[in-house]
Design a protein around this nucleic acid. Structure first.
Lengths: 234, 234
DNA sequence: TGTACATCAGTGAACGCGCGTTCACTGATGTAC
DNA sequence: TGTACATCAGTGAACGCGCGTTCACTGATGTAC
């Protein structure tokens, strides 16, 4: 029993080490990661990796799930430090957590939010991990709605085809939020990731230099658009 | 002279054919495109490609420039068919042109708006081509501003660091547009590309099915946010 | 119009690499009695 | 506590591929006189 768990622990550590090295290789190889290169860095023969991951794709999948969880965890953590009543502040914390995480781990961001890897199909394992971040947004909207401080916008009615899908998402994550407000929330989410992707993927090169301030300003505007009111400062 | 231009024309056709084949290979290989595979499909020995492109990276650059120009041209064309006074309609035409182009040529979209290719640095040749689409947006804002129909929003003041950069862009593309409105325009641009990227890169899988309607709705909302008023229907 | 020469497209072999995955194996670690 | 056996991590060789780029070359096309 004790002995088994030693072997298991070593195995877990080894698995982590492989992933850590593989993550570093994302920077140079992008998503067409080389198992042999990982094995070399690990100081092990290439076939030894197969004791831990049955194929290159499985390793990639593990990295993807880890990345989603790392991002999700960071977002949850940063958001949780903000006063619960300060919905705008909570949203801004989410925005900055995402951007900071992305700037710190650009290749992992690219792995999950960039172009799909050719020939790789993500299994559905990733869905739950992927949902962590956006569900924080939903929770903020939900809290604001229940507190009665979610400001309505001049929304156009949702198209009939879209309503059921939006309703399904709302029912799952934030039932108190009116669908038009949820729709605005998702629009904001798209803008947030549009901003981060443009910055990371080089679209701002030779255009914007003051990226911190630009991002902060854009997200500040967005907060109002989402109906979260102004940030409390005292 | 005549003879020279025949050779030149054949050369141009060959160059185009190489790019066409290479574009097709983007679908299977993504950005780590194989010269040898292109040569095979062209029915030519691999070293022959070097008569036309000095390296794999130069071929990639050509594809990137072409993609930006193709997108830019499509956007310009679609936008130009809309009544000049219908600024909202013009903006929506741009949005749909971009999404339609991206859905029709997903791998070219990924090449220019997806994760950067590892080991590849885009030369500055691409900047002009890349600016074509966004400059259409600026032109719409400019026309609306000059017509006096660009509605002001409740904008927060631009941060001091951001203002000069925004002013530079404004001066270059749309001097009549107030900077806060330009800033909102760029926010909308980010949302537009965020929406297209999420859809193309698989973030909507298992979440949204009614993507046409969802996109149309989001962009309709965005139009109002940008201060372009409602779409004219008659 | 005809000939000598220059240009240049495409060939084929080679260099020196890389890769993912399989398989029979050794030897250490853990388990059951 | 000691021994027989099972598990499993890691080895090393091999299979069958792939790649970008260089280089000396052939032979056709174009140019200049």
């Amino acid at each position: 029993m004790k002995a088994t768990s030693i072997r298991a622990r070593v195995r877990a550590e080894m698995t982590e080490e492989i992933k850590t090295i593989a993550r570093a290789h994302l920077a140079t190889d992008g998503a067409n990661l080389s198992l042999r290169a990982v094995a070399r860095d690990l100081g092990v023969v290439s076939s030894a990796i197969y004791r831990y991951f049955p194929s290159r794709d499985e390793l990639l999948t593990a990295l993807i799930v880890d990345a989603y969880n790392s991002l999700g965890g960071t977002v949850e953590e940063r958001e949780s430090t903000v006063d619960r009543q300060d919905h705008a502040g909570r949203f801004l914390a989410v925005c900055h957590a995402i951007r900071d995480w992305a700037l710190a781990r650009p290749h992992e961001y690219a792995l999950i939010y960039g172009s799909p890897v050719p020939g790789y199909r993500a299994p559905t394992d990733t869905v739950a991990a992927a949902a962590r971040s956006v569900s924080v947004l939903c929770r903020i909207l939900q809290d604001a709605a229940r507190a009665g401080v979610l400001v309505a916008g001049d929304d156009k009615p949702l198209p009939a085809e879209v309503e059921p899908e939006m309703a399904r998402i709302g029912a799952q994550f934030c039932p108190a939020v009116p669908l038009p407000a949820l729709s605005r929330g998702l629009a904001g989410w798209l803008q947030l990731f549009g901003a981060v992707s443009f910055e990371l993927f080089g679209q701002f090169d030779n255009v914007f230099d003051q990226r911190d301030a630009f991002f902060a300003h854009q997200m500040g505007q967005l907060t109002a658009y989402l109906g979260l009111g102004r940030r409390r400062t005292g």
